[in-house]
Amino acid sequence: KEMRNAYWEIALLPNLNNQQKRAFIRSLYDDPSQSANLLAEAKKLNDAQA
């Protein structure tokens, strides 16, 4: 469930391009235990690109 939530949050971040989203989501599938960390990194990048 945590992975699914992280997937959708990443997919809906407005300032990431599709390539960036795909990279984060690929990492999510590679290591679901890192969901919270990956989401935090994606949000950080999203904010930096705002």
Rank of each mutant, 00 (worst) to 15 (best):
S35E: 06
A50P: 07
P14F: 04
L13W: 03
D47E: 13
R26W: 11
K43I: 07
A48S: 15
R4I: 14
I25F: 15
S27G: 11
R4S: 13
K21S: 01
K21Y: 02
N46Q: 02
L16D: 00
D30H: 12
A36Q: 14
L13H: 06
N15P: 00
N15F: 12
A11W: 15
K21V: 05
A40E: 11
N5D: 15
K1Q: 12
R22L: 13
P32E: 04
F24T: 01
E2M: 04
R26E: 10
E9Y: 14
A48G: 13
R22K: 11
S35K: 15
A36K: 15
P32V: 05
D31W: 08
Y29R: 07
M3E: 10
N18S: 15
L39Y: 05
Y7T: 05
Q20H: 02
M3Q: 11
E9G: 06
R22T: 09
R4E: 15
I10C: 02
Y7N: 02
Q34F: 08
F24R: 01
E41A: 12
A23G: 13
A6M: 08
Y29H: 06
L38M: 06
D31F: 13
D31P: 01
K44R: 10
K43H: 15
K1S: 15
A36Y: 13
Q20P: 00
D31N: 13
N17H: 10
N5C: 08
N5F: 13
K21D: 00
P32G: 04
R22I: 10
A42G: 02
L28Q: 01
A36D: 07
Q34W: 06
D30L: 15
M3G: 07
R22G: 11
K21T: 02
S33K: 12
W8F: 12
N5M: 07
I10G: 00
P14R: 10
K44D: 08
A36C: 04
N46Y: 01
L13T: 01
A11R: 15
K44V: 14
W8M: 13
A23D: 15
P32K: 05
S27D: 11
A11F: 14
P32L: 05
Y29P: 01
D47H: 07
N17F: 08
K21E: 01
E9H: 09
P14K: 08
S35T: 06
K1A: 14
N18Y: 08
K43R: 15
W8V: 11
M3Y: 14
Q34I: 10
N17D: 04
A48W: 14
Q34T: 08
F24D: 00
S35F: 11
S35V: 09
A48K: 13
M3A: 04
A40P: 02
N5K: 15
D31T: 04
A40Q: 15
Q49M: 10
A40T: 12
K21H: 02
K1Y: 07
F24Q: 01
Y29I: 10
N17Q: 05
Q49K: 05
A50S: 14
Y7W: 07
L12Y: 14
A11H: 15
I10K: 00
Q19C: 15
N5T: 14
